[in-house]
């Protein structure tokens, strides 16, 4: 008992002050939201889109039309390939969106995108229990979701928790491109969640199939089977990005 108390004293209280205080400092090399400079593209230049491993960048007549964060691996290959520094990743962690279209970054969009509401309403405001389903996820999105339960993030403060049973959940947090082999299990898990319920797609795989989009073994994301309410882009998203999404679903941010 004494040893436990001594350890408790040494380990201290480490739960972050966020969201009341500042968010934790992210590393300098953390990419964050991409920004595309307006009318900076050379004629017929496709350097960024051919460098992109997931075809996330669409090119039109006057250069980049949009970068789809729902497909983006945040690998920065486009940033490196661009001869004119048109694309840059500026470290904003707030990426979650309700509308798939809001994941499109277009030339001239501001560095810090306006916070669109993703508030899911009263039922989830003080308690949001989620059933996590990995459907072909590599373990990274799962780990960065799971870490939110540790004392450093302590999402239990907000009444957010991962439940063991879908029957006790308010929604499903899906990761992975949704493999064919997980199709039925995912549908049946969501069916077991009582109404009202929400579906959150975390990571490029769950949003669009990501890297695996063209594989016949998968279904290109959760939207292929379910109506997704919130998208959290990243490969994997930083825990802060996921927490930001969850808090905004609750209307806390």
């Amino acid at each position: 008992m004494l040893a436990i108390l001594k350890a408790r004293f040494l380990q201290k209280h480490r739960t972050m002050a966020y969201p009341k205080g500042d968010p934790p400092l992210l590393p300098e090399k953390y990419p964050g939201r991409p920004v595309i400079r307006e009318s900076g593209c050379r004629k017929d230049c496709e350097a960024c889109s051919s460098a992109c491993p997931t075809n996330a960048i669409s090119i039109g007549k006057s250069g980049i039309e949009a970068l789809d964060m729902g497909r983006c691996l945040f690998c920065r290959a486009c940033e490196e390939a661009c001869p004119d520094d048109v694309i840059s990743f500026r470290g904003d962690h707030r990426l979650a969106a309700v509308c798939r279209n809001d994941l499109m970054v277009r030339p001239g969009d501001p560095e810090e995108a306006p916070m669109k509401s993703i508030d899911a309403g009263a039922p989830f405001r003080r308690s949001l229990k989620l059933r996590q389903v990995s459907a072909g996820g590599c373990g990274a999105c799962e780990a960065d979701s799971n870490v939110l339960s540790t004392p450093a993030w302590d999402m239990g403060r907000f009444g957010i928790e991962f439940t063991a049973s879908p029957r006790h959940a308010d929604g499903v947090l899906v990761t992975g491109p949704v493999t064919r082999n997980m199709r039925e299990a995912l549908i049946r898990t969501l069916e077991a969640v009582p109404e009202p319920k929400i579906v959150i797609a975390v990571g490029a795989c769950a949003i669009s199939g990501g890297l695996f989009r063209e594989h016949e073994e998968q279904l290109s994301g959760a939207s292929s089977l379910l109506e997704v309410d919130v998208f959290v882009p990243g490969c994997p998203p930083h825990p802060l990005t996921i927490l930001d999404g969850l808090l905004r679903i609750q209307g806390r941010l």
């Binding site: 072909g136 590599c138 780990a143 493999t179 890297l211 695996f212 594989h215 016949e216």
Partner: peptide, 28 residues
């Protein structure tokens, strides 16, 4: 249940995907 068909696609995909397949073969 997690089968994504990575091995075959390593040789069938554009070369700029290969490293990403390795990074996500087992994400941890």
């Amino acid at each position: 249940y997690q089968h994504r068909g990575i091995e075959d696609m390593i040789t069938a995909s554009p070369p700029n995907r290969v490293l990403h397949y390795m990074e996500t073969a087992a994400g941890d």
